[in-house]
């Protein structure tokens, strides 16, 4: 494997980490009003991602930063040609980020509602736009754009619903299970359509295999959520997103942008070698301490109201 191929794989891996991790917290943000009947429920839902969402978002910063360093022409071409959608994504991440951070620090009902509006808008908009951008990049048609957006949004919602079901107790958990089943009504056809088209057009055997893994783990995830096997279901939906991202990056090889090959876009071997060493040293550490965070907060969240004997 050449350095260029290796770095293309690393970037695919970073995007995979981003979509798997922030995928569920986009879903949680989007579903928050639907899973809640009162403020205690909303706190419970948002509490599932409270300690981790910001760390999840760094996967995006790292993926984009690594593209800048390893494939400058890919980075600059992609970002300048999807100018307005990316602006909306950044705007969405801004309102979502301040909503999540400030939610615990505001007092009035109106301010809470504003924070929630930021969280929901930012989550839905961003989850949709990532798929739309990549759908448009691959096919350039309106249909592919909408299908891509629908796929990323419904997968995020499903993944987030399963995560909430995994991390909560009581009525919120039950509603999250229902939401997961409902989301699958959109996610399954979108996944089947997109994941049969991409390997058919760019196809190699391994992409067909990845697409098959994505669709079958999606079906398994829904079935497991139905049977309340949430841990397994979450593993399945995470695998779906990972395999879908792998298929996508398979289609982006060897020309991640029209008229630009990976080899043309790449930085010189010196830079790629240096980055390889830094990545090899740093990334295992990152994965270790982020995993530790999930371990620290591994317990299910009970509703805040049941713990406080007021009202």
């Amino acid at each position: 494997m050449t350095l260029t191929t290796f770095w293309f794989t690393v970037i695919a891996f970073l995007w995979t980490g981003y979509f798997v991790l922030e995928g569920f917290d986009f879903g949680v943000g989007a579903l928050m009003p639907l899973l809640s009947r009162n403020e205690a429920d909303r706190k419970q839902v948002i509490g599932t991602i409270g300690p981790v969402w910001d760390g999840n978002e760094v996967w995006l910063i790292t993926a984009v930063g690594a593209m800048f360093a390893a494939f400058p022409a890919w980075y600059s071409g992609l970002l300048s040609s999807f100018y307005l959608p990316l602006f909306l994504i950044v705007g969405g991440l801004i309102v979502r980020g301040v909503g999540l951070e400030w939610r615990g620090k505001v007092s009035s009902r109106r301010e809470l509602a504003l924070c929630d509006a930021g969280i929901v808008t930012g989550s839905v908009l961003t989850a949709f736009l990532w798929g739309a951008i990549f759908g448009n990049l691959l096919y350039g048609t309106a249909f592919a754009t909408v299908l891509g957006g629908a796929l990323s949004l419904t997968l995020a919602v499903l993944h987030g619903a399963v995560f909430v079901a995994l991390k909560t107790t009581g009525p919120v958990r039950a509603r999250a299970r229902m939401a997961a089943l409902l989301a699958s009504v959109g996610a399954v056809p979108a996944a089947v359509a997109a994941l049969s088209a991409i390997p058919a057009d760019h196809g190699s055997a391994w992409m067909w295999a990845a697409a098959l893994v994505a669709v079958s783990t999606l079906a398994a995830g829904v079935a497991l959520a139905w049977r309340r096997r949430e841990g397994m279901a979450f593993t399945a939906t995470a695998t779906t997103i990972a395999a879908t991202t792998a298929t996508l990056f398979g289609a982006l090889w060897p020309a991640p942008l029209p008229g630009l090959t990976v080899a043309e876009a790449a930085s010189a071997p010196y830079t790629l070698t240096v980055l390889t060493w830094i990545g090899l040293i740093a990334l295992p550490g990152v994965i270790a301490y982020q995993s530790w965070t999930y371990w620290v907060f591994r317990k299910r969240l009970t509703s805040a109201v049941s713990d406080i004997s007021v009202h």
Partner: peptide, 18 residues
Amino acid sequence: STFVGDVFGAPLAMEALL
């Protein structure tokens, strides 16, 4: 970005990673 990415991108990637 295309001109400088090879040099300028490295500290940015390190910033995110480290």
